[in-house]
Design a protein around this nucleic acid. Structure first.
Lengths: 157, 157
DNA sequence: TGACTAAGTTCTATTTTGGAACTTACTATT
DNA sequence: AATAGTAAGTTCCAAAATAGAACTTAGTCA
């Protein structure tokens, strides 16, 4: 699996995982919180939480001793999924919003403004999109004896 | 389903869809291109392409008349999934990369630099992350007679 | 003692997916 | 004129994953 997108999807590419992560960003921590909000079966939730712990996205923290009770918190690796959530939020707002407008708004604490963050080029600060970006093989593909998996072509319109 | 993330995931939240979209960004268009690259069964690929067309993310374009042959191209709605792909690429590069380094690099055509785009605040231009952003109910939730689905709390560290 | 709670696990029925073979509508080769 | 090849699917059955409900654990509370 030579692509980071594929590697990412091997962890978060299913119907529930990013909803669990979203709930974690919204402050939910306990088994029952996730279960009530998502309406998934305990069985699946348990399995998903376990996988997220194995992958290092959540950690299981004891919050009470008798009886033993645990809650789930995002790790650094999990917190770093935020841009994926925001990208999904942005797309959903734009293409799947109901008549009422977006259900959630984001606020940038540092400047206090209600904004939707955008993808920008760190070199020139311009907003980027599929048309202004192109892909090429990186170090993980270049130094290979066998031929690259596929010729990487930039989309030509 | 009151959340745009959930609405987005109802379309792209499975093991294959974003890989198909990624391949489309890399220039693949034909049934066999997707099938060879992804190794998914024709059966599933056919079903997935069909769903992506129904959702307006791909369009089916006749590229030859006898015998009739079709290819799949991203619509505007599909092209707008680019930030989701980039966010996944970025996370995969950072947390799941092999020893060789990232398999794919991105270039910003406008400035020619090899970069990884970042999420920034459109108001103050700072890069944002989960800790510098917070969520609050938007118009889609505010004007409701019945109580909000869940109290939205910002993560407090 | 009995009811309640949070966090799971176990079990079976249903749904989804994988894999291989088959189909369609042609073109190219012998 | 038969045979092989190609691109894009469809069909069918077995295997795997998921849903839903019941059960378990380790306690507290009245």
């Amino acid at each position: 699996m030579k692509c980071s997108v594929a590697r990412t999807l091997s962890v978060i590419g299913d119907r529930w995982t990013m909803l669990i992560v979203r709930d974690a960003f919204l402050g939910k921590r306990r088994f029952a919180d996730f279960q009530d909000d998502l309406g998934m079966t305990r069985h699946r939730l348990s399995a998903r939480l376990g996988k997220l712990i194995d992958e290092g996205i959540l950690m299981r923290v004891r919050y009470q001793d008798r009886p033993p009770r645990f809650e789930y918190r995002l790790t650094e690796k999990g917190i770093d999924l935020y841009p994926v959530i925001v990208a999904m939020l942005r797309w959903g707002d734009r293409w799947m919003a109901g008549a009422d407008g977006p259900p959630i708004e984001l606020v940038h604490k540092n400047c206090g403004k209600h904004v939707m963050p955008a993808l920008t080029c760190p070199a020139c600060k311009e907003e980027v999109n599929a048309r202004t970006m192109s892909a090429r093989p990186g170090p993980g593909l270049r130094r290979r004896s066998h031929p690259p998996v596929a010729r990487i072509s930039s989309r030509k319109e």
